[in-house]
Design a protein around this nucleic acid. Sequence first.
DNA 1: TTGCTTGCAAAAGCTTTGCACCCAC
DNA 2: GTGGGTGCAAAGCTTTTGCAAGCAA
Lengths: 148, 148
Amino acid sequence: MMLQSWIDQLKRNGHKVTAPRRKLLQYLDGRDAPFTAEEIYGELSATGVGRATVFRTLKLLQDVGVLVRVHLEHGCQHYQAAPGIPGDTHHHDRIICRECGDIALLDQCPMRSDVSDIARRSGFRIQGHHLDLYGICSSCEELPTKDD
Amino acid sequence: MMLQSWIDQLKRNGHKVTAPRRKLLQYLDGRDAPFTAEEIYGELSATGVGRATVFRTLKLLQDVGVLVRVHLEHGCQHYQAAPGIPGDTHHHDRIICRECGDIALLDQCPMRSDVSDIARRSGFRIQGHHLDLYGICSSCEELPTKDD
DNA sequence: TTGCTTGCAAAAGCTTTGCACCCAC
DNA sequence: GTGGGTGCAAAGCTTTTGCAAGCAA
């Protein structure tokens, strides 16, 4: 679904659409939760894609805005498809499920309108923000609670 | 200032207060911005502290709650003293300077009061959040702008 | 064709582990 | 005195780089 627009995005930036890139994008297309380089390599190596290519492609896809690196509570080498909102590539407030790692995007920024004022008291000029909400998604809420 | 309470925290958890640990805590005490293991090793190695000890101690201090790992835009192996606010160890909204990396804590949570409502539309039950504002601090603002 | 891409393997970082010695309690 | 803690060096992992061969445009 997003596949074609991602491919266009690559072309638009002057990059070739090669087999490994296509495979990586296909993987991305079928996946919503964040993944690590290791995970995707585990998946793609079977089809002959090299480790280095995975890293290079992940970096490339970040550069053209297809991927974003996400910073989870438990580590930060995770990647995820960037939300397809034109002109808004860098503002995606998220909700992350602590059980299953599922991520949803907020349809509305939950920041107060006077954020800049609050910030200015600290002497900062605000340029942007990065917000993750943490909680439990509906699917996990329904499951019998397993404590760990 | 925090030094003594951190030392107590170590003892309370059954750990010894050794010279390297004391040095690391002293470093922490005089520092507010996040630092990496490398930075602190660079600082402490001159006094004879080994690399492994730095990593082991950082992990230990996280375990007892003195340190938290922070997740910055550009990487996540950063550590910082946990805010000494009892019962609020995990809620520190921050402002981070994109120039110098300096970090300030917000004195007020800039989230709207209806966050939970917004989130609930995604089917999530919200437990907490992690917010970083990004911008330019006053010191850097004053410097002649250097583009890179 | 042409130069961007790739896979391999080696290198480079960063973090952990093994081990004998040491010191806070 | 004793067991946890330490420094050193080597090992382990993850990520990057070099290079000749391959392939999309």
